[in-house]
Nucleic acid binder design. Structure first.
Lengths: 190, 190
DNA sequence: CGGAATCTTGAAAGTGTTCAAATCAAGTGG
DNA sequence: CCACTTGATTTGAACACTTTCAAGATTCCG
């Protein structure tokens, strides 16, 4: 099995014996995927929670104007899923796609409860991860309201200058909720 | 102790013996608070996770124009906290205030780990609650991008007609991220 | 009743979008 | 390695949505 980042990330938050790790391996499904491959498409049920070992994923949906609207990016050491679809096992409105060649590790929804029963530490680990993700979402709502789109753009590039180099402009525009044309204008201005 | 809603909510998601409940009680801090009382103010560390037994809370911050910007409401059976401040025990940028007389139950941050060690089911319960809250936050990002403010207003009043009756217009405007003046205009139009 | 908070109205200004077209960059097959 | 085709970015003008400001009307609460 080849998911060193996941194991060390788990061990940062909960104790895991070597035996636990061996047991865990029987529940993990690692995969290498190519740029533009999909892990989830609209209409499908989100069947797993995905950990990014290496590479970059995006989550997006098709908005009412027929355009791709990106809602999340996931880099190394992040979990990504449509948690509404995953929790309720109902069809998703989202797509999850690799924007670089990537190595991911999946925990399947139908095995998750059994895994958590055998390794209760994982219940704690994911409680911490979900609380962290929700905390970030709360802050995101704040920034979204508090700053104009121009300010949000400047904030984003100052916080994640390296990441901005990894993705095309139109994806950044989509994530920030503005048009590629307007982003282009903002870049020109400063 | 008087928190029937909390106990039945817990039992919907995890098993809890009567002994567990008795133990739990020693960690819960129930409180009655009056309309306009604060559970958290900007600059304070968020010291507890709050469950609403009865009544209604709001969470807001003071934006860069000096106005109150509401980010969350919490009704019966919802948990509310600034999870960034709660997790990291750092000063909050938010206020939490009752907008009706309310009965709440608090779990203090400094007792939470000890409580979860004694009742590991709670780790699972809060993993489910946080995952649910994060799932809702993901959908909220989608609605926020997908609909104009006018459409978001119409969607909100169609989804929560009873709740709209419980709060003043200016709070709804604040939550939806539009001015009271514009909301007034939308109401007039239909 | 009186004062404060809330809600409405209308005009002017700003922010961001749309549309159409031109330019630039990149991947592919020959 | 070039030529071609497609995808990505830029430009500018017209337009749409939402805010701001100032004032007046209304409602709530002690």
């Amino acid at each position: 099995m080849n998911c060193p980042n996941l194991i060390s990330h788990l061990r940062k938050h909960v104790p895991l014996s070597d035996g636990d790790v061996a047991l865990l391996y029987t529940y993990l499904r690692p995969a290498s995927i190519k740029k533009k491959d999909f892990l989830l498409k609209e209409g499908q049920v989100c069947k797993a929670n995905y950990f990014v070992e290496k590479g970059c994923l995006r989550m997006f949906y098709i908005n009412n104007k027929g355009m791709e609207q990106i809602t999340h990016f996931a880099l190394e050491n992040w979990w990504l899923a449509d948690y509404m679809s995953l929790s309720l096992q109902q069809p998703s409105q989202f797509f999850i796609q690799a924007i670089e060649d990537a190595t991911i590790v999946a925990i399947e929804a139908h095995q998750q409860d059994e895994l958590f029963r055998k390794l209760p530490q994982l219940e704690r680990y994911f409680r911490i991860m979900m609380q962290r993700a929700y905390a970030a979402a709360q802050m995101r709502v704040k920034y979204h309201h508090d700053y104009s789109k121009e300010e949000n753009y400047k904030l984003f590039i100052s916080l994640f200058p390296a990441f901005v180099q990894r993705i095309p402009q139109y994806m950044l525009a989509s994530y920030l909720g503005l048009t590629p044309e307007y982003l282009s204008e903002l870049r020109r201005k400063g």
